[in-house]
């Protein structure tokens, strides 16, 4: 039996941005991502969020929930999952909280052209214990 054949692709210098317009279908986000100043929130799925303070009396229920669950570091993806809020809504909420100094963000480790060997070794070590 012969398996179907694929064709390798080359890296594209500028990765396509935004929604692909496949099949002529118009796909758009329901929620617009923008922070207080209209800037796109620099939050990644795995940016870690840590509370800086106890919920102030002025906090909204969502903010209170975030501050409670972020007493220990927690990723934006997890916060979104626990609050059942879409990721884009979550980033807007967190951007406001960052601006108000209610929370702190810890930037993720991102892929580099030359992978960080000591990080990979740490990951392998961690996986071995699993």
């Amino acid at each position: 039996m012969t398996p179907p054949q694929r064709q390798r692709r080359q890296p594209v210098p500028e990765p396509p941005e935004g929604p692909p317009q496949e099949d002529g279908k118009d796909v758009e986000r329901l929620y617009v991502i923008s922070g207080a100043d209209g800037e796109r929130a620099p939050l990644d799925l795995v940016t870690l969020i840590v509370a800086r303070a106890e919920p102030p009396s002025s906090a909204t229920p969502e903010q209170t929930a975030v501050l409670r669950m972020c007493r220990a570091p927690l990723s934006v993806a997890e916060i979104s999952a626990y609050l059942s809020l879409p990721f884009s809504v979550m980033t807007v909420l967190l951007t406001e909280m960052l601006a108000a100094d209610l929370v702190q963000a810890r930037a993720p480790i991102v892929r580099q052209k030359i992978p960080d060997r000591s990080l990979l070794e740490a990951v392998m070590h961690g996986l071995q214990r699993l």
Binding site: V46, A65, A72, P73, L74, Y82, L83, S84, L119
Partner: peptide, 27 residues
């Protein structure tokens, strides 16, 4: 969303808390 008066505060179980020393996440 209404968390008031609910005893189930959303969030990780205590055994799922990451240590405070966690500086970064990779994916």
């Amino acid at each position: 969303m209404d968390f008031k008066g609910s005893d189930t505060i959303p969030g990780p179980r205590s055994e799922d808390h990451l240590p405070h020393t966690t500086t970064a996440a990779a994916k």
